[in-house]
Design a binder for these strands. Structure first.
Length: 247
DNA sequence: GAAATTTGACCTCA
DNA sequence: TGAGGTCAAATTTC
């Protein structure tokens, strides 16, 4: 099956290419969060090397994106309705805690939104989340669920909401499985170690043990750090099982 | 029994 | 004033 990414590239503009690059960048981050726990358990040195390689690739994409952004700005503005996602965007945006007064209920400011994604696996992002609320949203068929980082005792302010899309998306006459809009707020201050350990408890990580993501992980465990196969990596990123779309 | 989830009430903000 | 976000007690799950 030809990926939607490829199709857009073939007929696309600078903005389409930018959109795909953002998607790839985000996919890389998700893949990084996905495989690092397994790598660290197996071999800490490989994990460190993998982090370095991932960061290099993400930086390269960021460099290409900034060039393309220069071109597309000259050509007439950004793609409507798409968040601009820059490297570490979530980390840079948040200087203040999201909730300024503990115990006070405050409506979330949209400025605090860091990024949003559409995915079929909303729990699968490498972090350990705890649900703290659920609401029916006006005009929506499905409820919205509210999650915060499970490491709140370490003052981690990260939260996210998961909203199932009202209608399943159909691409190339194929009925896709239910998709969820995941919006992340704040960033994790619970550090990588917690992310790593927390991921073991993340419901999404069960997917690996259950075999849904086993292919990707198995491939990576066989990975030779000295032999980076970029086409193969792109194949993994295009894996519909992950199916992350930046919105 | 601890941890996680559910759910109704409450609070804030547009 | 109502929609959306959060709290916290009750309930469920492990």
């Amino acid at each position: 099956m030809k990926s939607s990414s490829t199709m857009v590239v073939n007929g696309g503009s600078e903005m389409d290419a930018l959109f795909l690059l953002r998607r790839q960048q985000e996919l890389l981050r998700q893949l990084r969060a996905l495989i690092l726990p397994a790598l660290r358990d197996a071999d800490g040195r490989s994990a460190d090397l993998a982090i370095s390689l991932f960061d290099d690739v993400i930086d390269c994409i960021a460099g290409v994106m900034s060039r393309l952004e220069g071109i597309s700005t000259q050509a007439g503005g950004r793609r409507a309705g798409v968040d601009v996602i820059t490297p570490n965007a979530g980390e840079r945006q948040e200087e203040k805690p999201m909730i300024s007064n503990v115990g006070q209920k405050r409506r979330r400011n949209n400025d605090k939104r860091s990024r949003s994604l559409i995915t079929v696996v909303p729990h699968y992002d490498g972090h350990h989340w705890r649900k703290y609320g659920q609401k029916n949203i006006n005009g929506r068929e499905h409820t919205r669920s509210y999650y915060r980082c499970a490491y709140t005792e370490r003052n981690c302010p990260a939260t996210k909401t998961i909203q199932q899309q009202d209608h399943n998306i159909t691409i190339n006459c194929e009925e896709k499985t239910a998709k969820y809009i995941v919006v992340y707020y704040g960033h994790h201050t619970c550090c990588d170690d917690n992310t790593r350990n927390g991921a073991k408890n993340d419901p999404g990580m069960d997917l690996i043990q259950n075999g849904k993501m086993a292919g990707a992980v198995t491939e990576f465990q066989k990975f030779d750090p000295g032999d980076v196969d970029m086409p193969a990596l792109i194949e993994v990123l295009d894996n519909p099982e992950l199916n992350w779309d930046i919105i």
